[in-house]
Amino acid sequence: MTREPAIRTAAMPADTNANGDIFGGWLMSLMDMGAGLIAARRARGPVATVAMDGMQFHLPVKVGDEVSVYCEITRVGRTSITMAVEAWRRHRYEDEQHKVTQAVFTFVALDDNGRPRLVD
């Protein structure tokens, strides 16, 4: 089965922490951006992140690694969308990918006044 990433980018030197690995906050932000794209498409309008649960880092990401974020909607509520989000890395000269982290993100659909609205 081939799945398409919600977002894909290369990890750059500016994204590193004091140890020289990619900063976990950068990775979390990338996951939020990718998941937000999917949630907004499903909600057919603006969404806001309201929760992120269960994030665990399995492997470090290095400068130059390709990072792909995959999302799967697991629940659609009246005003919310919950999804499983995974981040995978691939060394720039290799084909094999490795999962580096995952989390559950929850978004709420917003109306024009920034208040929760029903998800279509």
Rank of each mutant, 00 (worst) to 15 (best):
A87R: 05
T82P: 00
N17D: 13
H91A: 15
L30W: 03
Q97C: 09
C71E: 04
V69K: 04
D53C: 07
G24Y: 07
W88H: 14
V76S: 08
V119D: 03
R3N: 09
N113H: 10
G34Y: 06
R42N: 03
L27F: 00
Y70T: 05
A40G: 07
R44I: 01
W26C: 06
A48K: 07
D65W: 08
L30A: 06
L30G: 00
F57E: 08
P116L: 15
W26H: 11
G36C: 08
E94L: 14
T9Q: 04
A51Y: 09
T82M: 03
H58T: 05
M1V: 15
D111Y: 00
A43M: 06
R90H: 03
I7C: 08
F105A: 04
F105W: 06
E72P: 00
W26N: 09
E86W: 06
H58I: 12
N17F: 06
Q102W: 02
S29T: 15
G20M: 14
D112Q: 12
M12Q: 13
R3K: 12
G114W: 05
T16A: 04
E66D: 03
M52S: 07
T101I: 03
M1G: 15
K99P: 01
A48L: 13
V108M: 13
L110V: 08
H98L: 07
D32E: 08
P46F: 08
A40Q: 10
L30E: 06
A48N: 03
A48E: 01
D120N: 04
H58G: 01
D120C: 02
M31Y: 04
Q56A: 11
V69F: 07
